[in-house]
Amino acid sequence: MKSNTLILHTAALFIMPLQLMFSVFLLFRGHDEPGGGFIGGLVASGAFVLYAFAFGSEATRRILRVAPRDLLSAGLLFALASTIPAFLAGQPMLTAHWWELPLPGDGYLKLSTPLIFDIGVYAAVLGTIMTFVISLMESDE
């Protein structure tokens, strides 16, 4: 009797969104509690790796939209960009700057250079691991 990968497909469809959400959660709580860009990026790549196991490298490329290598370099640029405010203010590199954007209701969206740095690291980690995995997959095919 031949078998198929139905269970893994369904599981990937349900589990991957939860993993992605958790990775974003880790990314945003990074500054004063455990978490941060690196571990968030790892969890996100775990999610995409699971997707790649279930649906193949081509589908994974398609949902990533950008090539993983571009993600990696964009992440590095982003992390670099987080040093600009400190540079303009004449402070040592990577000094934290904070802004608060008022939102409808009484909330604030807190933006800070550490967060921008974390987003950069997130993209760089995701890009690196997906570059590995996808090129390994394609060299295998």
Partner: peptide, 14 residues
């Protein structure tokens, strides 16, 4: 899930 994860409902979390 996101609302609960981010410690209660606020403008940013919505």
């Amino acid at each position: 899930t996101w609302q609960f994860l981010s410690d209660g409902i606020s403008g940013g979390s919505v």
